[in-house]
Simulated assay, not measured.
Amino acid sequence: MTERQIRIFGDPVLKTVSDPIGSIDDRVRGLVDDLVDSVRPPGRAGVAASQIGVNLRAFSYNIDGDIGYILNPVIVETRGDKEPVEEGCLSVPGLWYPTPRYPFVRVTGTDVDGNTIELSGTGLLAQALQHEVDHLDGLLYLDRLEKADRRAAMKEIRESDWF
């Protein structure tokens, strides 16, 4: 289908809790195609439907060349204590801050045929799964930052040329 434009900080869709996907129709299939096309460019680990302006619970991922998607994802398991991991976001261009994330995560959901999908891992995959589910819950990684880092990030945003 099409690589879609990424919505930027300040767009209300990024702070909206996404609706669950009910029946799978051509609209949902088209969304999946767009999500997959939108995550292909280099440097993209994940794209949530809300980041392309669609208020549905779906995201795509691109981890070490493994590209896929998941509908109605739910984090079903975390392991370890949260650790600060350098994190950025396509919707907050140019900013990177240490964000507390679990070192292991397992997510379940479905594909467009209704089959169960399970994604689990550590490192970048664990970080991306948490980051994208946060998007679907109306959260940006900025919402997870320590107070001083969040204040610094907001200052950087206000001074950026894209805001």
Rank of each mutant, 00 (worst) to 15 (best):
G43S: 12
G43V: 10
R44S: 14
R44N: 15
R44E: 09
R44V: 15
A45G: 15
A45K: 10
G46A: 02
G46D: 06
G46N: 09
G46E: 06
V47A: 06
V47T: 10
A48R: 13
A48L: 04
A48K: 10
S50A: 13
Q51G: 04
Q51I: 04
I52A: 08
G53T: 06
V54C: 10
N55I: 08
N55S: 14
N55M: 07
L56E: 14
L56V: 07
L56A: 11
R57G: 05
A58L: 11
A58Q: 08
F59N: 14
F59G: 13
Y61R: 14
Y61G: 02
N62V: 02
N62I: 02
N62D: 14
I63L: 05
I63Y: 01
D64A: 14
D64K: 15
G65I: 08
D66M: 09
I67C: 03
I67E: 11
G68N: 13
Y69W: 05
Y69P: 08
L71V: 04
L71I: 07
L71Q: 01
L71C: 05
N72M: 06
N72H: 13
N72T: 11
N72I: 02
V74N: 04
V74I: 05
V74L: 00
I75G: 00
V76Y: 11
V76T: 14
V76P: 01
E77H: 10
E77I: 06
E77W: 07
T78I: 12
T78K: 12
T78N: 10
R79C: 01
R79F: 01
D81Y: 01
K82I: 08
K82V: 10
